[in-house]
Computed example of a mutant assay.
Amino acid sequence: MVQIGDLKLSDFPLLLAPMEEVSDPPFRAICKTYGADLMYTEFISSEGLTRNANKSLKKLTIYEQERPIGIQIFGEKIEVMREAAAIVEQAQPTLLDINYGCPVKQVACRGAGAGILLDLPKMQAMAAEIVKQVSIPVTVKTRLGWDHHSIKIVEVVQRLQDVGIQAVSIHGRTRQQMYKGIADWSYIAAVKAHPGIHIPIFGNGDIDTPLKAIAYKEKYGVDGIMIGRATIGYPWIFREIKHYYATGTLLPPPTLVERVATIQQHLSHAIQWKGMQTAMLEMRRHYSNYFKGIPYIKPYRAQLVEASSYAALCDVLEEIAALPITQMVAN
């Protein structure tokens, strides 16, 4: 069993990573259905929260059926982050997560996200203030460092643990790498193996199959795995990893009928959350991912994107579900 504060998870929990414009309530509902043990919201700007920006405040919405769930915030100003943490706690998430890993220029180059890894004393001071501000567990998602020459991830985790951070998820790349190259989990293993570190450590980066998930667990000793990009269009990965971990056998990929049913569920949640027009527009970016690798599907993807009404969209989905395609492929 893995424990974060009072939260008790399985002995090998699978976490849904916070992803901007992806891990909203409709997508989280789908991932929960297929076995995500702990999920995070999209990251939320601390400045947006303290200024009552509608976009930021809307991201605070969570549902009882999503629990356990964490709300993630980012920012470069300690006082603003502390104030934002107080606002987050009012939304009653299971835990609060601090983003020390976002690599995008407009975040990191302002000293937020992965940018704070260039100033470890400030990173530690910010975490300490947030821990003192709230009564719920506080966790952190981070990267190995700013670049290969500044990797101090063991020290980072020690500093965070010292001020009360109760779990850390580590993406095995530096900020300089962005999402290129191969995630280096050897640094994550060094954190987990350090005798002075006792909080749960979750690994993140490049996990896209059940075999890789279990191989990395055994090789690097992590307490659990956080999965991001591999879940986009393939939420079944949670189910498949859990099945392989429990039985040593692989589940077959989801059928075309199941893929269509999942899209319909995702769309239904999105309509409830965003309204018909916005849901129809924003779901367009998901169709190619849900049908990735499926033969003969390209013309239908275009029809899904171009569908002018909900009824027309449903007609296309029904046509796809009826296609005589029996050989499915994994993501």
Rank of each mutant, 00 (worst) to 15 (best):
P253T: 10
G205S: 12
K242M: 05
K105P: 00
I78M: 10
Y100G: 01
S45G: 05
S135R: 14
V80N: 01
K8V: 05
Y220P: 09
H243W: 08
Q277T: 11
F202W: 02
I62M: 04
G145Y: 05
F238H: 05
M81E: 03
I170G: 05
K152H: 15
T41V: 08
G233A: 14
E64T: 10
F202S: 00
G181V: 11
H194F: 07
S308K: 15
R67V: 01
E21W: 04
R159H: 10
K32R: 15
H243R: 09
V80H: 00
L304D: 03
E318M: 10
H149R: 13
Y244T: 10
S268I: 00
Y63L: 13
D315E: 15
G75H: 02
I73H: 00
Y220F: 15
W185A: 02
D206I: 12
A322P: 03
H198D: 12
I44Y: 01
Q92H: 13
A322V: 08
N52C: 10
G35T: 06
E64H: 11
S169D: 07
P324N: 08
Q92F: 02
G228R: 10
D147I: 06
Q3V: 11
W273E: 15
L60W: 01
Y100S: 03
F27L: 10
D24A: 12
A167M: 07
A128L: 06
N54M: 09
Y234D: 08
A127S: 14
Q90G: 02
A261N: 15
E240I: 08
R259Q: 06
P13K: 02
V157N: 02
M280W: 03
F202N: 00
K141H: 14
K292A: 15
I271F: 08
T231S: 13
Y100H: 08
G203M: 10
M178F: 14
A193F: 09
I263R: 01
I325D: 02
E218N: 15
I188D: 03
D97W: 04
L251Q: 12
L304M: 03
D184S: 11
L60I: 09
A112K: 02
I241L: 08
E240T: 08
K212I: 12
F291R: 12
D37P: 05
K141A: 13
L60N: 05
D315H: 12
M123C: 14
K192G: 11
T278L: 06
K298T: 14
V316Y: 03
A261I: 03
I4C: 03
K152M: 12
Q176V: 09
K242Q: 13
I116S: 00
Y216R: 07
Y290W: 06
T231K: 06
